[in-house]
Design a binder for these strands. Structure first.
Lengths: 137, 137
DNA sequence: TTTACAAATCGGAATCATTACGATATAATG
DNA sequence: CATTATATCGTAATGATTCCGATTTGTAAA
């Protein structure tokens, strides 16, 4: 998912393409990892174009519901990153920088077999630690 | 982990065994699933022995740091359950009642092999949905 | 290109979960 | 049973997120 595709999706679904929305898309396309609402607010302030909390949170939810962003609960804060929908996978998440590495392994096949009476709606597999770059820093 | 073991652990580590602490232990021993601070506060109010937020949160953290409780971030709230330290495993978590079912599968062996340059500190594997009991209700 | 209007934004107030704080109470030890 | 460090209490403060009324803006039709 890139900015171009996301804008296309917004238009197809009848949502307006506004300056704030574009700014958010470009930010998350650039950052290859999980970021919070505050991360984004700080970034915009540094670039002299801060926007309302309301707008940021509302669009984060919109983007999540449209599948443009994926999210995870971490340390009591919601974190978001661009959604890579091409294949099903999971992430290593660096606790220092928030950047991620793809993990192309998923044990859900096995697990579904042992939960036949359960209505499975989703799952989460995440690995936490420090990435090579942050280790050397 | 049961109440008896937890109390033993508190004493060994030099912590006092107080009424509020005992109440919390009995609550989590009884409930076989993830519960929030508020869940516990509501329970105590119904039993006419409510206690301070400060006390509840402080002891939740204490119990977590001692390994008496395990925790997970869910819907922007921290959830806790009695820790079952006998074997490494993961959980199915019912989104309606919070109760859990053990999943004795873990793909970390495979995953560690593909993350050789990464400093791995932890991981999370959770399956979400509706348990059989809540489906029929 | 202008107009019209639904949709989006803004700033600030409100809410919810969680943490901090000073005063009081209490478990553990001698 | 006296001492004292530790825990609790009630409340105030914090941090993330949501809500709200007023204003602005994209979009589509005139």
């Amino acid at each position: 998912m890139d900015v171009k595709q996301a804008i296309q999706l917004l238009q197809n679904e009848g949502y307006k393409v506004t300056k704030p929305r574009e700014n958010m898309l470009y930010y998350f396309e650039e950052e290859d990892g999980y970021r919070t609402a505050k991360d984004f607010m700080l970034f915009t302030e540094e670039n002299y174009e801060s926007m309302s909390f309301d707008t940021v949170y509302r669009n984060l939810h919109l983007y999540h519901s449209l599948g443009i962003l994926e999210s995870t609960d971490l340390d009591g804060e919601k974190h978001f990153r661009m959604n890579c929908m091409t294949d099903h996978h999971h992430h290593f998440i660096c606790k220092d920088c928030g950047n991620t590495k793809k993990i192309p392994i998923c044990p859900m096949g096995e697990i579904e077999e042992m939960l036949t009476d359960y209505d499975i709606e989703g799952h989460k597999l995440e690995v936490y630690g420090v990435c090579p770059l942050c280790q050397s820093a």
